[in-house]
Write a protein that binds this DNA or RNA. Structure first.
Lengths: 238, 238
DNA sequence: GCGCAAACCTGACAAAAGTCATCTTTTTGT
DNA sequence: ACAAAAAGATGACTTTTGTCAGGTTTGCGC
Protein backbone atom coordinates (compact mmCIF):
# COMPACT_ATOMS: atom_id res chain seq x y z
CA UNK A 1 0.00 0.00 0.00
CA UNK A 2 1.57 3.26 -1.10
CA UNK A 3 1.84 6.03 1.40
CA UNK A 4 -0.28 8.99 0.50
CA UNK A 5 1.16 12.39 1.23
CA UNK A 6 -0.81 15.45 2.07
CA UNK A 7 0.04 18.88 3.34
CA UNK A 8 -1.36 21.34 5.82
CA UNK A 9 0.55 24.33 7.13
CA UNK A 10 1.23 23.91 10.85
CA UNK A 11 -0.08 27.42 11.42
CA UNK A 12 -3.41 26.36 9.94
CA UNK A 13 -3.58 22.96 11.66
CA UNK A 14 -6.82 22.45 13.56
CA UNK A 15 -4.94 20.85 16.42
CA UNK A 16 -2.14 23.37 16.84
CA UNK A 17 -3.92 24.75 19.90
CA UNK A 18 -3.88 21.30 21.57
CA UNK A 19 -0.27 20.68 20.72
CA UNK A 20 3.04 21.45 22.35
CA UNK A 21 3.85 23.54 19.28
CA UNK A 22 1.19 25.99 20.39
CA UNK A 23 2.81 29.30 21.32
CA UNK A 24 5.84 28.84 19.09
CA UNK A 25 6.99 31.99 17.31
CA UNK A 26 6.01 32.21 13.62
CA UNK A 27 9.66 31.70 12.67
CA UNK A 28 10.04 28.59 14.80
CA UNK A 29 6.75 27.19 13.60
CA UNK A 30 7.71 27.71 9.99
CA UNK A 31 11.03 26.03 10.67
CA UNK A 32 9.04 22.99 11.73
CA UNK A 33 6.55 23.42 8.92
CA UNK A 34 9.11 23.73 6.15
CA UNK A 35 10.78 20.46 6.93
CA UNK A 36 7.85 18.26 7.78
CA UNK A 37 6.44 15.45 5.68
CA UNK A 38 2.80 14.55 6.13
CA UNK A 39 1.44 11.12 5.38
CA UNK A 40 -1.96 9.48 5.45
CA UNK A 41 -2.07 6.06 7.06
CA UNK A 42 -4.73 3.39 6.91
CA UNK A 43 -5.92 1.35 9.89
CA UNK A 44 -3.42 -1.36 10.69
CA UNK A 45 -0.36 0.39 9.23
CA UNK A 46 2.66 0.85 11.43
CA UNK A 47 4.29 4.20 12.14
CA UNK A 48 7.41 2.88 13.83
CA UNK A 49 8.68 -0.38 15.24
CA UNK A 50 10.13 -1.46 18.58
CA UNK A 51 13.90 -1.82 18.31
CA UNK A 52 14.46 0.72 15.53
CA UNK A 53 16.15 4.09 15.80
CA UNK A 54 14.05 7.25 15.81
CA UNK A 55 14.90 9.75 13.12
CA UNK A 56 12.39 12.38 14.01
CA UNK A 57 9.16 13.28 15.70
CA UNK A 58 5.63 12.38 14.65
CA UNK A 59 2.81 14.82 15.20
CA UNK A 60 -0.77 13.63 14.86
CA UNK A 61 -3.14 15.59 12.67
CA UNK A 62 -6.01 13.09 12.45
CA UNK A 63 -6.96 9.58 13.54
CA UNK A 64 -5.92 7.38 16.47
CA UNK A 65 -2.73 5.43 17.00
CA UNK A 66 -1.88 2.81 19.61
CA UNK A 67 1.61 2.60 21.06
CA UNK A 68 2.32 -0.84 22.47
CA UNK A 69 4.91 -3.35 23.52
CA UNK A 70 4.86 -7.03 22.66
CA UNK A 71 5.80 -9.51 25.34
CA UNK A 72 7.58 -12.81 24.81
CA UNK A 73 4.36 -14.73 24.10
CA UNK A 74 3.30 -12.08 21.61
CA UNK A 75 0.75 -10.42 23.87
CA UNK A 76 0.36 -6.69 23.47
CA UNK A 77 0.38 -4.12 26.18
CA UNK A 78 -0.90 -0.73 25.07
CA UNK A 79 1.01 2.10 26.70
CA UNK A 80 -0.73 4.99 25.09
CA UNK A 81 -3.35 5.93 22.55
CA UNK A 82 -2.43 9.03 20.58
CA UNK A 83 -4.99 11.47 19.24
CA UNK A 84 -4.75 14.56 17.02
CA UNK A 85 -2.39 17.13 18.48
CA UNK A 86 -0.28 14.52 20.26
CA UNK A 87 3.40 13.91 19.69
CA UNK A 88 4.45 10.38 18.92
CA UNK A 89 7.83 8.80 19.50
CA UNK A 90 9.31 11.73 21.40
CA UNK A 91 10.41 9.64 24.38
CA UNK A 92 12.93 7.52 22.48
CA UNK A 93 14.00 10.55 20.49
CA UNK A 94 14.78 12.61 23.58
CA UNK A 95 16.41 9.76 25.49
CA UNK A 96 18.49 8.93 22.39
CA UNK A 97 17.47 5.28 22.54
CA UNK A 98 15.80 2.85 20.18
CA UNK A 99 12.03 2.76 20.12
CA UNK A 100 10.83 0.53 22.95
CA UNK A 101 7.38 0.21 21.51
CA UNK A 102 5.55 -0.09 18.22
CA UNK A 103 2.99 2.39 16.92
CA UNK A 104 0.07 1.11 14.86
CA UNK A 105 -2.87 3.01 13.39
CA UNK A 106 -6.22 2.25 15.06
CA UNK A 107 -8.29 4.66 12.99
CA UNK A 108 -7.18 6.10 9.63
CA UNK A 109 -4.68 8.79 10.46
CA UNK A 110 -2.81 11.78 9.12
CA UNK A 111 0.56 12.17 10.72
CA UNK A 112 3.36 14.67 10.11
CA UNK A 113 6.99 13.76 10.49
CA UNK A 114 9.53 16.32 11.64
CA UNK A 115 13.19 15.34 11.14
CA UNK A 116 15.01 15.32 14.44
CA UNK A 117 17.54 17.98 13.37
CA UNK A 118 14.79 20.54 12.93
CA UNK A 119 12.97 19.55 16.08
CA UNK A 120 16.16 19.71 18.13
CA UNK A 121 17.10 23.01 16.55
CA UNK A 122 13.88 24.63 17.73
CA UNK A 123 14.21 22.92 21.09
CA UNK A 124 17.74 24.27 21.61
CA UNK A 125 16.92 27.77 20.51
CA UNK A 126 13.75 28.12 22.43
CA UNK A 127 14.05 27.56 26.18
CA UNK A 128 10.36 28.25 26.73
CA UNK A 129 9.44 25.47 24.31
CA UNK A 130 12.00 23.17 25.93
CA UNK A 131 10.53 23.94 29.32
CA UNK A 132 7.04 23.12 28.04
CA UNK A 133 8.22 19.83 26.59
CA UNK A 134 9.89 18.91 29.89
CA UNK A 135 6.75 19.78 31.76
CA UNK A 136 4.64 17.59 29.48
CA UNK A 137 7.06 14.67 29.69
CA UNK A 138 7.13 14.85 33.48
CA UNK A 139 3.37 15.06 33.63
CA UNK A 140 3.16 11.97 31.43
CA UNK A 141 5.51 10.23 33.79
CA UNK A 142 3.17 10.99 36.66
CA UNK A 143 0.33 9.41 34.71
CA UNK A 144 2.44 6.33 34.25
CA UNK A 145 3.27 6.13 37.94
CA UNK A 146 -0.43 6.19 38.60
CA UNK A 147 -0.99 3.35 36.14
CA UNK A 148 1.81 1.37 37.68
CA UNK A 149 0.28 1.51 41.13
CA UNK A 150 -3.13 0.71 39.70
CA UNK A 151 -1.82 -2.32 37.85
CA UNK A 152 -0.06 -3.52 40.96
CA UNK A 153 -2.93 -3.44 43.39
CA UNK A 154 -6.28 -3.24 41.65
CA UNK A 155 -8.41 -6.10 40.37
CA UNK A 156 -9.13 -6.47 36.67
CA UNK A 157 -12.69 -5.29 37.28
CA UNK A 158 -11.46 -2.12 38.96
CA UNK A 159 -8.89 -1.52 36.25
CA UNK A 160 -11.37 -1.96 33.45
CA UNK A 161 -13.76 0.48 35.09
CA UNK A 162 -10.95 2.95 35.70
CA UNK A 163 -9.74 2.69 32.11
CA UNK A 164 -13.21 3.19 30.71
CA UNK A 165 -13.46 6.35 32.76
CA UNK A 166 -10.06 7.48 31.57
CA UNK A 167 -11.03 6.84 27.95
CA UNK A 168 -14.23 8.74 28.56
CA UNK A 169 -12.23 11.72 29.85
CA UNK A 170 -10.02 11.78 26.77
CA UNK A 171 -12.25 10.55 23.96
CA UNK A 172 -15.69 11.12 25.39
CA UNK A 173 -18.35 12.92 23.36
CA UNK A 174 -20.78 14.21 25.94
CA UNK A 175 -24.44 13.54 25.42
CA UNK A 176 -27.37 14.08 27.75
CA UNK A 177 -26.42 12.21 30.90
CA UNK A 178 -24.14 9.87 29.01
CA UNK A 179 -20.91 9.99 27.06
CA UNK A 180 -19.78 8.10 23.98
CA UNK A 181 -16.17 6.94 23.92
CA UNK A 182 -15.21 7.91 20.40
CA UNK A 183 -12.72 5.13 19.80
CA UNK A 184 -13.31 1.93 17.85
CA UNK A 185 -11.45 -0.45 20.13
CA UNK A 186 -11.60 -4.21 19.76
CA UNK A 187 -12.10 -6.27 22.91
CA UNK A 188 -8.57 -7.47 22.40
CA UNK A 189 -7.19 -3.93 22.35
CA UNK A 190 -9.17 -3.07 25.44
CA UNK A 191 -7.69 -6.14 27.13
CA UNK A 192 -4.23 -4.90 26.09
CA UNK A 193 -4.94 -1.57 27.74
CA UNK A 194 -6.22 -3.07 30.96
CA UNK A 195 -3.59 -5.79 31.05
CA UNK A 196 -5.76 -8.89 31.04
CA UNK A 197 -7.21 -11.62 28.79
CA UNK A 198 -9.72 -10.82 26.07
CA UNK A 199 -12.29 -13.22 27.53
CA UNK A 200 -12.14 -11.47 30.88
CA UNK A 201 -12.81 -8.10 29.28
CA UNK A 202 -15.77 -9.53 27.37
CA UNK A 203 -17.27 -10.98 30.55
CA UNK A 204 -16.77 -7.83 32.60
CA UNK A 205 -18.12 -5.57 29.86
CA UNK A 206 -21.29 -7.61 29.70
CA UNK A 207 -21.50 -7.40 33.51
CA UNK A 208 -21.23 -3.62 33.29
CA UNK A 209 -23.83 -3.62 30.55
CA UNK A 210 -26.27 -5.74 32.60
CA UNK A 211 -25.79 -3.36 35.50
CA UNK A 212 -26.68 -0.44 33.26
CA UNK A 213 -23.29 1.25 33.50
CA UNK A 214 -22.54 1.13 29.79
CA UNK A 215 -24.05 0.18 26.44
CA UNK A 216 -22.54 -0.68 23.09
CA UNK A 217 -23.03 1.48 20.02
CA UNK A 218 -21.49 -0.33 17.10
CA UNK A 219 -17.86 -0.80 18.01
CA UNK A 220 -18.00 1.97 20.53
CA UNK A 221 -18.93 2.10 24.18
CA UNK A 222 -21.29 4.59 25.74
CA UNK A 223 -20.85 5.34 29.44
CA UNK A 224 -24.29 5.65 31.00
CA UNK A 225 -23.43 5.91 34.67
CA UNK A 226 -19.98 7.32 35.31
CA UNK A 227 -20.56 7.50 39.06
CA UNK A 228 -21.34 3.83 39.43
CA UNK A 229 -18.45 3.05 37.15
CA UNK A 230 -16.21 5.07 39.44
CA UNK A 231 -17.49 3.01 42.35
CA UNK A 232 -16.55 -0.14 40.43
CA UNK A 233 -13.12 1.38 39.92
CA UNK A 234 -12.86 1.88 43.66
CA UNK A 235 -12.37 5.58 43.23
CA UNK A 236 -13.64 8.02 45.76
CA UNK A 237 -16.87 9.49 44.44
CA UNK A 238 -17.53 13.05 45.48
CA UNK B 1 13.82 13.77 66.32
CA UNK B 2 15.73 16.87 65.31
CA UNK B 3 17.13 17.11 61.85
CA UNK B 4 20.89 17.03 61.79
CA UNK B 5 22.55 19.24 59.24
CA UNK B 6 25.87 18.55 57.62
CA UNK B 7 27.77 20.06 54.75
CA UNK B 8 29.86 18.83 51.88
CA UNK B 9 30.82 20.97 48.90
CA UNK B 10 29.14 19.63 45.75
CA UNK B 11 32.50 19.76 44.00
CA UNK B 12 33.91 17.38 46.60
CA UNK B 13 30.89 15.08 46.73
CA UNK B 14 31.81 11.42 46.17
CA UNK B 15 28.75 10.96 44.01
CA UNK B 16 29.07 14.00 41.77
CA UNK B 17 30.38 11.76 38.99
CA UNK B 18 27.20 9.61 39.14
CA UNK B 19 24.90 12.59 39.23
CA UNK B 20 23.25 14.78 36.62
CA UNK B 21 25.23 17.69 38.09
CA UNK B 22 28.35 16.09 36.70
CA UNK B 23 29.86 18.29 33.99
CA UNK B 24 28.34 21.51 35.30
CA UNK B 25 30.63 24.51 35.08
CA UNK B 26 32.29 25.54 38.38
CA UNK B 27 30.09 28.64 38.48
CA UNK B 28 26.89 26.69 37.99
CA UNK B 29 27.94 24.07 40.50
CA UNK B 30 28.74 26.69 43.09
CA UNK B 31 25.38 28.32 42.42
CA UNK B 32 23.82 25.01 43.43
CA UNK B 33 26.27 24.52 46.25
CA UNK B 34 25.81 27.91 47.82
CA UNK B 35 22.09 27.54 48.23
CA UNK B 36 21.76 23.93 49.26
CA UNK B 37 20.86 22.62 52.70
CA UNK B 38 22.10 19.18 53.65
CA UNK B 39 20.33 17.05 56.23
CA UNK B 40 20.93 13.65 57.78
CA UNK B 41 17.88 11.44 58.01
CA UNK B 42 17.30 8.30 60.05
CA UNK B 43 15.61 5.18 58.76
CA UNK B 44 11.85 5.67 58.67
CA UNK B 45 11.90 9.46 58.32
CA UNK B 46 10.02 11.03 55.46
CA UNK B 47 11.57 13.34 52.90
CA UNK B 48 8.35 14.48 51.26
CA UNK B 49 4.70 13.52 51.23
CA UNK B 50 2.19 12.70 48.53
CA UNK B 51 -0.14 15.64 47.94
CA UNK B 52 2.26 18.39 49.02
CA UNK B 53 3.90 20.98 46.82
CA UNK B 54 7.56 20.63 45.90
CA UNK B 55 9.76 23.57 46.83
CA UNK B 56 13.00 22.25 45.50
CA UNK B 57 15.09 19.31 44.46
CA UNK B 58 16.62 16.63 46.68
CA UNK B 59 19.97 15.15 45.80
CA UNK B 60 21.12 12.00 47.57
CA UNK B 61 24.55 11.93 49.14
CA UNK B 62 24.25 8.74 51.20
CA UNK B 63 21.72 6.05 52.13
CA UNK B 64 18.67 4.65 50.38
CA UNK B 65 15.20 6.10 50.00
CA UNK B 66 12.00 4.49 48.76
CA UNK B 67 9.50 6.51 46.73
CA UNK B 68 6.03 5.00 46.91
CA UNK B 69 2.33 5.55 46.52
CA UNK B 70 -0.33 4.38 48.94
CA UNK B 71 -3.51 2.87 47.55
CA UNK B 72 -6.96 3.17 49.08
CA UNK B 73 -6.48 0.17 51.39
CA UNK B 74 -3.15 1.58 52.56
CA UNK B 75 -1.01 -0.79 50.52
CA UNK B 76 2.25 0.61 49.26
CA UNK B 77 3.58 0.43 45.76
CA UNK B 78 7.26 1.32 45.48
CA UNK B 79 8.00 3.24 42.30
CA UNK B 80 11.68 3.79 42.80
CA UNK B 81 14.52 3.28 45.21
CA UNK B 82 16.95 6.17 45.23
CA UNK B 83 20.65 5.77 45.91
CA UNK B 84 23.53 8.25 46.32
CA UNK B 85 23.88 10.49 43.28
CA UNK B 86 20.18 10.27 42.43
CA UNK B 87 17.79 13.19 42.26
CA UNK B 88 14.61 12.93 44.26
CA UNK B 89 11.33 14.67 43.64
CA UNK B 90 12.32 16.17 40.29
CA UNK B 91 9.28 14.81 38.43
CA UNK B 92 6.70 16.80 40.38
CA UNK B 93 9.01 19.81 40.41
CA UNK B 94 9.40 19.85 36.63
CA UNK B 95 5.75 19.10 35.90
CA UNK B 96 4.72 21.80 38.39
CA UNK B 97 2.38 19.44 40.19
CA UNK B 98 2.01 18.20 43.73
CA UNK B 99 4.04 15.22 44.79
CA UNK B 100 2.23 12.06 43.71
CA UNK B 101 4.30 9.86 45.96
CA UNK B 102 5.90 9.79 49.38
CA UNK B 103 9.63 9.40 50.00
CA UNK B 104 10.79 7.52 53.10
CA UNK B 105 14.30 6.64 54.23
CA UNK B 106 15.13 2.92 54.01
CA UNK B 107 18.73 3.23 55.20
CA UNK B 108 20.11 6.22 57.10
CA UNK B 109 20.61 8.93 54.53
CA UNK B 110 22.28 12.25 53.82
CA UNK B 111 20.30 14.35 51.42
CA UNK B 112 20.86 17.84 50.07
CA UNK B 113 18.00 20.17 49.24
CA UNK B 114 18.32 22.70 46.43
CA UNK B 115 15.62 25.42 46.37
CA UNK B 116 13.73 25.33 43.11
CA UNK B 117 14.72 28.91 42.16
CA UNK B 118 18.37 27.98 42.05
CA UNK B 119 17.80 24.71 40.29
CA UNK B 120 15.62 26.35 37.64
CA UNK B 121 18.12 29.17 37.26
CA UNK B 122 20.87 26.75 36.33
CA UNK B 123 18.49 24.79 34.16
CA UNK B 124 17.45 27.89 32.19
CA UNK B 125 20.96 29.19 31.73
CA UNK B 126 22.50 25.93 30.74
CA UNK B 127 20.92 24.21 27.73
CA UNK B 128 23.39 21.34 27.91
CA UNK B 129 22.33 20.58 31.47
CA UNK B 130 18.68 20.93 30.50
CA UNK B 131 19.24 18.52 27.62
CA UNK B 132 20.86 16.03 30.00
CA UNK B 133 17.97 16.27 32.44
CA UNK B 134 15.48 15.71 29.63
CA UNK B 135 17.43 12.71 28.43
CA UNK B 136 17.48 11.22 31.90
CA UNK B 137 13.77 11.82 32.45
CA UNK B 138 12.90 10.22 29.12
CA UNK B 139 15.12 7.28 29.86
CA UNK B 140 13.37 6.84 33.19
CA UNK B 141 10.07 6.90 31.38
CA UNK B 142 11.26 4.05 29.20
CA UNK B 143 12.09 2.06 32.31
CA UNK B 144 8.58 2.67 33.58
CA UNK B 145 7.03 1.55 30.30
CA UNK B 146 8.99 -1.65 30.66
CA UNK B 147 7.71 -2.12 34.20
CA UNK B 148 4.16 -1.44 33.10
CA UNK B 149 4.26 -4.18 30.46
CA UNK B 150 5.89 -6.53 32.93
CA UNK B 151 3.27 -5.90 35.56
CA UNK B 152 0.52 -6.43 33.02
CA UNK B 153 1.57 -9.78 31.62
CA UNK B 154 4.06 -11.53 33.87
CA UNK B 155 3.31 -13.80 36.81
CA UNK B 156 4.36 -12.84 40.31
CA UNK B 157 7.13 -15.44 40.16
CA UNK B 158 8.53 -13.92 36.97
CA UNK B 159 8.23 -10.41 38.35
CA UNK B 160 9.99 -11.28 41.57
CA UNK B 161 12.85 -12.93 39.65
CA UNK B 162 13.07 -9.96 37.28
CA UNK B 163 13.09 -7.48 40.16
CA UNK B 164 15.79 -9.38 42.02
CA UNK B 165 17.91 -9.21 38.87
CA UNK B 166 17.20 -5.53 38.51
CA UNK B 167 18.14 -4.89 42.14
CA UNK B 168 21.29 -6.92 41.57
CA UNK B 169 22.20 -4.69 38.61
CA UNK B 170 21.79 -1.53 40.64
CA UNK B 171 22.78 -2.51 44.17
CA UNK B 172 24.81 -5.67 43.57
CA UNK B 173 28.21 -6.08 45.17
CA UNK B 174 29.93 -8.65 43.00
CA UNK B 175 31.58 -11.58 44.70
CA UNK B 176 33.06 -14.73 43.20
CA UNK B 177 30.24 -16.16 41.09
CA UNK B 178 27.60 -14.47 43.20
CA UNK B 179 26.37 -11.00 43.98
CA UNK B 180 25.03 -9.49 47.19
CA UNK B 181 22.14 -7.08 46.86
CA UNK B 182 23.24 -4.31 49.17
CA UNK B 183 19.83 -3.21 50.31
CA UNK B 184 18.16 -4.10 53.59
CA UNK B 185 14.64 -4.63 52.28
CA UNK B 186 11.85 -6.13 54.35
CA UNK B 187 9.70 -8.80 52.73
CA UNK B 188 6.91 -6.28 52.82
CA UNK B 189 8.95 -3.72 50.88
CA UNK B 190 9.94 -6.34 48.34
CA UNK B 191 6.27 -7.20 47.94
CA UNK B 192 5.57 -3.50 47.37
CA UNK B 193 8.17 -3.43 44.63
CA UNK B 194 6.87 -6.53 42.89
CA UNK B 195 3.23 -5.61 43.40
CA UNK B 196 2.02 -8.60 45.37
CA UNK B 197 1.24 -9.83 48.88
CA UNK B 198 3.98 -10.24 51.50
CA UNK B 199 3.14 -13.93 52.00
CA UNK B 200 3.58 -14.61 48.30
CA UNK B 201 7.03 -13.03 48.31
CA UNK B 202 8.02 -15.11 51.32
CA UNK B 203 6.91 -18.33 49.66
CA UNK B 204 8.59 -17.56 46.36
CA UNK B 205 11.83 -16.46 47.99
CA UNK B 206 12.03 -19.73 49.87
CA UNK B 207 11.34 -21.54 46.58
CA UNK B 208 14.23 -19.68 44.96
CA UNK B 209 16.38 -20.50 47.96
CA UNK B 210 15.55 -24.22 47.81
CA UNK B 211 16.42 -24.19 44.13
CA UNK B 212 19.79 -22.67 44.92
CA UNK B 213 19.16 -19.41 43.09
CA UNK B 214 19.60 -17.17 46.11
CA UNK B 215 20.57 -17.22 49.80
CA UNK B 216 19.89 -14.88 52.65
CA UNK B 217 22.66 -12.97 54.41
CA UNK B 218 21.13 -11.19 57.36
CA UNK B 219 18.50 -8.88 55.88
CA UNK B 220 20.11 -9.03 52.48
CA UNK B 221 19.79 -11.35 49.53
CA UNK B 222 22.66 -12.91 47.67
CA UNK B 223 22.07 -13.94 44.07
CA UNK B 224 23.84 -17.25 43.47
CA UNK B 225 22.63 -18.13 39.99
CA UNK B 226 21.66 -15.14 37.92
CA UNK B 227 21.16 -17.22 34.79
CA UNK B 228 18.60 -19.51 36.34
CA UNK B 229 16.95 -16.49 37.92
CA UNK B 230 16.71 -14.95 34.46
CA UNK B 231 15.04 -18.13 33.25
CA UNK B 232 12.52 -17.81 36.09
CA UNK B 233 11.95 -14.24 34.97
CA UNK B 234 11.22 -15.54 31.50
CA UNK B 235 13.97 -13.42 30.03
CA UNK B 236 15.97 -14.57 27.07
CA UNK B 237 19.24 -15.97 28.34
CA UNK B 238 22.16 -15.58 25.98
C1' DG C 1 17.90 -9.72 80.02
C1' DC C 2 13.08 -9.17 79.56
C1' DG C 3 9.06 -8.08 77.27
C1' DC C 4 6.86 -6.29 73.49
C1' DA C 5 6.38 -5.36 68.81
C1' DA C 6 7.54 -6.11 64.37
C1' DA C 7 8.99 -9.10 61.00
C1' DC C 8 8.88 -13.56 59.20
C1' DC C 9 6.87 -17.95 58.10
C1' DT C 10 3.30 -21.72 57.22
C1' DG C 11 -1.07 -23.86 56.13
C1' DA C 12 -5.82 -23.85 54.68
C1' DC C 13 -8.93 -21.93 52.02
C1' DA C 14 -11.38 -18.81 48.74
C1' DA C 15 -11.52 -15.78 45.04
C1' DA C 16 -9.88 -14.06 40.86
C1' DA C 17 -8.38 -14.64 36.55
C1' DG C 18 -6.28 -17.34 32.85
C1' DT C 19 -6.72 -21.07 29.44
C1' DC C 20 -8.94 -23.93 26.24
C1' DA C 21 -12.54 -25.42 23.44
C1' DT C 22 -16.47 -24.35 20.96
C1' DC C 23 -19.84 -21.64 18.88
C1' DT C 24 -21.93 -17.38 16.84
C1' DT C 25 -21.68 -13.02 14.71
C1' DT C 26 -19.47 -9.56 12.10
C1' DT C 27 -16.20 -7.94 8.86
C1' DT C 28 -13.42 -8.19 4.87
C1' DG C 29 -11.54 -9.33 0.42
C1' DT C 30 -12.43 -10.82 -4.08
C1' DA D 1 -22.70 -11.87 -2.68
C1' DC D 2 -20.08 -15.28 -0.76
C1' DA D 3 -16.47 -17.55 1.53
C1' DA D 4 -13.01 -17.02 4.73
C1' DA D 5 -11.24 -14.77 8.48
C1' DA D 6 -11.57 -12.11 12.40
C1' DA D 7 -13.96 -10.69 16.38
C1' DG D 8 -17.07 -11.64 19.93
C1' DA D 9 -19.26 -14.63 23.30
C1' DT D 10 -19.90 -18.51 26.59
C1' DG D 11 -18.95 -22.57 29.48
C1' DA D 12 -15.87 -25.69 31.97
C1' DC D 13 -11.94 -26.12 34.18
C1' DT D 14 -7.25 -25.07 36.25
C1' DT D 15 -3.91 -22.27 38.14
C1' DT D 16 -2.41 -18.46 40.49
C1' DT D 17 -2.64 -15.51 43.99
C1' DG D 18 -4.75 -13.23 47.87
C1' DT D 19 -6.61 -13.57 52.51
C1' DC D 20 -6.95 -15.06 57.09
C1' DA D 21 -5.45 -17.23 61.05
C1' DG D 22 -2.09 -19.01 63.56
C1' DG D 23 2.54 -19.74 64.66
C1' DT D 24 7.90 -18.55 65.43
C1' DT D 25 11.82 -15.69 65.34
C1' DT D 26 14.22 -11.36 65.59
C1' DG D 27 15.23 -6.89 67.14
C1' DC D 28 14.79 -3.06 70.15
C1' DG D 29 13.82 -0.07 74.20
C1' DC D 30 14.14 -0.01 78.93
Amino acid sequence: MAKVEFNIACSLCDHLKDSLFNGLSPEDLSRINNHKTCVQYKKGQNIFYEGTRPTGLYCMNAGKVKVFKNNVQGKEFIIYIAKPGDFLGYRALLSEEFYQATATVLEDAKICFIPKENFFEVLQKNPVFMRRVVKAVCHEMGVMEEKLAELAHKSVRERLAANLLMLKETYGMEGEGSSLIDLALSREDLASIVGTATETVIRLLSDFKSDGLITFEGKKIRVLDAKKLAKQADLIVA
